[in-house]
């Protein structure tokens, strides 16, 4: 069984590699067939054509596309994505500067989403069909459909413009370096609260619905009644028998959600001017910084695949019977 599991994991790994390769190829082709020349920006029309050729050569853009493509793939396998046109340093270094923000945001956001969804669902199920329950369900639908741009701006308006509680943008204050360590943590936390809320509330509403419907449905099943008749306490029934059943669909959604969070949450990062992957992606696309664009695409696709894989492993841990279907 272990060998079969390993085989399936390996197969999935290879399939993921193939998909990553396809994505990089797709982005490469899209970039190269698009009109416009990235070196144009750095060239004055007064320069001689020979010099312009030289600049192109320094960017490796003078060769035919096929040669460029194979050179690029060869470099990629050695972990070299090239040098960013804009930042003038290795692409992976640029990405590693922007990654911490996105990783923090995604990590805390998925935890907040799951916890908020779970506890509100418990709260709501206990008061089934009361006014609170109905209100929570209505509010969760409204929350779920609210776009990030609207939600973020409303939060900024309430908490930073009106009450002046939290800063409206940036990752840390300009006097960050002078603060002591706890002060630094506090500073970053104050900056991250509003973006985290913006990212988490719609997802929390989604998880609330999944948890609530799931718990309600499973509690009506016959096996719960049987366990109750056999004298198991409600706590044990809920923890050992109800929750694993509810978690299955939640975890598949959580995998997708985490993937999207890790690949950079464009609108939120733009609103709160956070230096994360999403803003890096947009700015690199708009400034035609092609090595950076490809690397960003690669990294975000990798994260999506990875996030799905992590949550699949958790699912296997919870329900051991169905690992064949999940890992396939």
């Amino acid at each position: 069984m272990t060998i079969e599991k390993l085989y399936l994991v390996l197969k999935r790994f290879l399939a993921s590699l193939f998909i990553l390769f396809l994505i990089v190829t797709l982005v490469f082709v899209l970039i190269r067939i698009s009109p416009g020349e990235p070196t144009q920006k750095y060239l004055s029309p007064k320069l001689s054509p020979e010099l312009a050729k030289e600049v192109q050569k320094s960017y490796n853009l003078d060769e035919p596309i096929i040669v460029q493509y194979f050179g690029f793939i060869r470099n990629m396998f050695t972990g070299n994505f090239g040098i960013s046109y804009e930042y003038r340093m290795p692409v992976l270094k640029v990405i590693s500067q922007h990654l911490p923000v996105t990783l923090t945001l995604a990590f805390f956001s998925i935890i907040i989403q799951l916890l908020l969804g779970y506890f509100f669902a418990l709260f709501s199920v206990k008061r089934k069909n009361t006014l609170t329950d109905k209100f929570l369900r209505r509010a969760s639908v409204v929350m779920y459909v609210t776009p990030g741009s609207v939600l973020g701006l409303i939060l900024i308006f309430i908490f930073s413009v009106h009450f002046d509680l939290f800063p409206s943008g940036g990752f840390h204050s300009y006097f960050y370096d002078e603060l002591s360590f706890p002060g630094q943590i506090k500073d970053i936390a104050a900056h991250l609260i509003l973006p985290l809320l913006t990212l988490s509330l719609p997802g929390a509403a989604l998880f609330f619905n999944y948890f609530r419907d799931g718990i309600e449905e499973v509690l009506q099943k016959d096996f719960v009644l049987y366990l109750k008749a056999n004298g198991f306490s409600n706590k044990v029934i809920f923890r050992k028998h109800v929750l694993p059943n509810v978690l299955k669909p939640v975890l598949s959604v959580a995998g997708i959600e985490l993937g999207f969070l890790l690949s950079g949450t464009l609108v939120t990062e733009v609103i709160f001017s956070l230096p994360g992957m999403g803003r890096l992606m947009i700015s690199s696309i708009l400034s035609r910084d092609f090595p950076l664009v490809i690397a960003c695409a690669f990294v975000s696709a990798m994260f999506i695949i990875l996030a799905n894989f992590i949550f699949d492993i958790i699912k296997v841990k919870i329900d051991r019977r169905i690992w064949r279907e999940i890992l396939r």
Binding site: L22, I23, L30, G36, G264, A297, A301, N308
Partner: peptide, 23 residues
């Protein structure tokens, strides 16, 4: 099917922005 997997394992908004910005 492979193409479908490819598009699903990638945020569509990124591709949309890429195409709109380039073309």
């Amino acid at each position: 099917n492979r193409l479908n997997d490819l598009f699903l394992s990638f945020p569509a908004i990124f591709l949309v922005i890429l195409v709109l910005a380039l073309f």
